[in-house]
Design a binder for these strands. Structure first.
Lengths: 219, 219
DNA sequence: GGAGAAAGTAGTCATGGACAACAATGTAGA
DNA sequence: TCTACATTGTTGTCCATGACTACTTTCTCC
């Protein structure tokens, strides 16, 4: 309708603040739509679950027409895939941070990592579900890559345990998977409502204890 | 339980073959629509996943009008809940059967039960996902009841292990949850594509071994 | 056999995803 | 600088679906 001259002016100069979405002035080109959509999608999924996510809603919330998202995501599934990928990146970062901040003691690191994982599972249950429900994992798939990267701190942890004689020898990946499964299962039991938050801490603690005992080197 | 009142109701003069859907004669009243919808839904979910499931499609496939399912399921979510519930019933039956057929040895029973669980997870991955994503678990919720019933063989198994001195003492439910989480996590890793079927057997075996070692009584 | 409940049908609406034609902006090369 | 072309948004449309309502057929029970 009535085009605003100021808006045009800003658009020409490509103000960085506009592009990051920190300034609300409108211009024809959003400048950062893909990221904005992902961010909004993540918030919506957290608050309303996957079913509450609609591309048209997303477009509205970001202030763009309903057709715009299509320029960045071919279809809804593509957006979900991207969301899952960014979820893996975030989870990986949080695991790595927990790993770092926990000092060098194996047990402390192990529990800190598990706690970080569960924290993520609690705060972003639906996102974690999504991350675990995305199918196509073709090894060269960016999703697969992101997932592998996210869990690398855990495998490093296993390696440390082996060096220190706390865990039995063997393929770190193989041993790590047992831990991984155990923690993910714990998270699933909680997010599915099968256990209460009161039981979660207990279960998480037990799972780790059993894992460590189970993986003890056999003298 | 007693939500089969409708079936009983119509069972009075309804031809059994009609009711099972083996006869294609049309009558205004389907006679068994609820069950037929659930059955068809289960097949569709297995073949096409949750997203491939539409009430209207279901109605078409079963040969009724698009409004008919509403008489039996208030909305789509209600159908999904019922599907999850029937999934728990089936899983429970399969776990119980595996438990029975495995003889009386604890280890054999344990592995047979885990195998049954994983078999279910592989054959009906999307259904298991659904079972674990249904939220409302209010203890008196039929879903919660069905879930608890399904896993009762597992807790019985824990009890046996304790009697035989193979597992440490303690609340069987608490110990059982660790096993449950471990197996469910294993299943999740597989159905999400994070591990290949080649790794599944190994992981499952490792998870059980670690669990048994971890739960060993401490002398 | 008739009243009323149960089960199915048909029509409608709003929402949402996918698609296509078009418009505005950005960019690179002559 | 000007101009062709690629990017990115917009608008309008189609179609499938879930949900709702009014109506019809059948069943059951008194």
């Amino acid at each position: 309708m009535d085009n605003n001259v100021d808006a045009d002016h800003n658009a020409v100069n490509g103000n960085i603040l506009d592009r990051v979405g920190l300034v609300s002035e409108k211009s024809y080109h959003h400048g950062n739509l893909r990221a904005a959509l992902l961010e909004q999608a993540k918030a919506t999924v957290r608050e309303q679950g996957l079913d509450g996510l609609s591309l048209r809603d997303l477009a509205r919330q970001v202030g763009v027409s309903h057709g715009a998202p299509r320029r960045h995501f071919q279809d809804r599934q593509a957006l979900l895939d991207a969301l899952a990928e960014s979820g893996f990146e975030q989870l990986g970062a949080e695991l790595a941070a927990a790993f770092e901040q926990a000092g060098s003691d194996f047990g402390t690191r192990l529990r800190a990592s598990a706690a970080a994982y569960l924290r993520f599972a609690i705060n972003d249950a639906a996102l974690l579900d999504l991350m675990f429900s995305s199918k196509g994992h073709d090894a060269d798939d960016p999703l697969h890559t992101a997932a592998m990267a996210a869990f690398s701190p855990m495998f490093e942890l296993i390696h440390q345990g082996q060096r220190e004689g706390i865990l039995e020898a063997g393929d770190p990946e193989r041993i790590g998977l047992v831990l991984f499964a155990s923690i993910q299962g714990t998270a699933a039991l909680f997010t599915s409502g099968m256990i209460e938050s009161a039981q979660l801490e207990q279960l998480a603690s037990d799972a780790i204890t059993y894992f460590v005992r189970g993986a003890l080197p056999i003298p």
